[in-house]
């Protein structure tokens, strides 16, 4: 997809995020907005996925995803972003976004496979587990001899979880060079700036010490730079090391009053705030 189309798509994704969170008056807009460019680029530009459609017009989805690239969302609280991208990609009806976090919905507060929402492969939300799951899937893909890539997105606050570092030592040990992890290094978490809450210091140096190849993404809210970083990471595949992209992003990006603060990590906008947010986000693909 061309850059202009990607930018138009991510603008709509950001509208979807804010509207979903407003619609149920709960959820996590900050990180969703900050990672919107990355996840949009993955699904609309980078990942090799089955583009065939079923009789219902939606993309066919196989949880196993044999022969496909896989994406795992470890920081599951940014589910509004994940749902918007999946719906806009064509896994399910965009109208279903209106059911986000409501009773009897497939769009659970945090991503779940339990309600069989197409596009979701693992439940996430309890932090720290996604890197392990992605490593397992990457191991399986290598065992099968597939030329595919497994992607996983994590938060930077999530790097405080011990399991992350268990997985971080596992992936290089098994030379999972088909695994590309992304850390959303926005330096914010629920209780405040990460360096105040629990300073996780130089995340890049840690991954390097664990044996990962690292890629710097200095602005995860610049679509061209996002696309370039993903290309750089992909070029590092097959060299015996897993790859991690350290993505500097701005929590709340695209909505001025949600930026430069952790306060919108898990807060929903009221009616006036929604209007103010939507005024900054062009409707490019039609609201759900």
């Amino acid at each position: 997809m061309k850059l202009e189309q990607l930018e138009a798509t991510v603008a709509q994704v950001r509208r979807d995020i804010v509207r979903m969170v407003h619609g149920c008056q709960s959820g996590h807009p900050g990180g969703s907005l900050g990672c919107a460019d990355l996840v949009t680029a993955l699904y609309f530009h980078v990942m090799k996925i089955d583009e065939s459609r079923g009789a219902d017009g939606f993309l066919n989805f196989s949880r196993e995803g044999r022969g496909e690239d896989l994406f795992f969302l470890s920081n599951g609280h940014i589910s509004p972003l994940f749902y918007s991208v999946l719906a806009r990609k064509g896994y399910f009806d965009t109208k279903e976004m209106a059911s986000f976090r409501k009773i009897n919905s497939r769009l659970q507060g945090h991503p779940a496979t339990h309600e069989h929402l197409p596009g979701i492969r693992i439940a996430s939300g309890s932090l720290g587990q996604g890197l392990s799951v992605a490593a397992g899937a990457a191991y399986a893909k290598k065992l099968r001899g597939e030329d595919t890539t497994v992607y996983v997105l994590m938060g930077d606050g999530e790097q405080q979880e011990g399991q992350i570092w268990e997985a971080a030592q596992f992936a290089p040990h098994y030379k999972l060079d088909n695994l590309i992890a992304i850390v959303d290094w926005n330096k914010q978490q629920i209780d405040g700036p990460t360096d105040k809450v629990m300073d996780n210091r130089d995340i890049k140096a840690k991954y390097e010490a664990f044996g990962w190849a690292t890629v710097d993404l200095v602005d995860g809210n610049n679509m061209q730079l996002v696309v370039d970083a993903l290309a750089t990471a992909k070029a590092l595949k097959g060299k015996g090391q897993p790859i991690v992209i350290l993505m500097k992003s701005e929590m709340g990006f695209g909505v001025d009053f949600m930026m430069h603060t952790h306060k919108w990590h898990g807060t929903a906008p009221n009616d006036e705030q929604l209007a103010a947010a939507l005024a900054q986000l062009p409707e490019t693909l039609g609201d759900y």
Binding site: L70, Q129, L131, S132, V133, G136
Partner: peptide, 22 residues
């Protein structure tokens, strides 16, 4: 798959292997 003394990761890796069909 030897996972070392890291049981939490082992369970996650197992889930990933299962999703991929093992």
């Amino acid at each position: 798959v030897q996972c070392g003394i890291a049981e939490a990761n082992m369970v996650g890796v197992a889930a990933g292997l299962a999703i991929a069909g093992y």
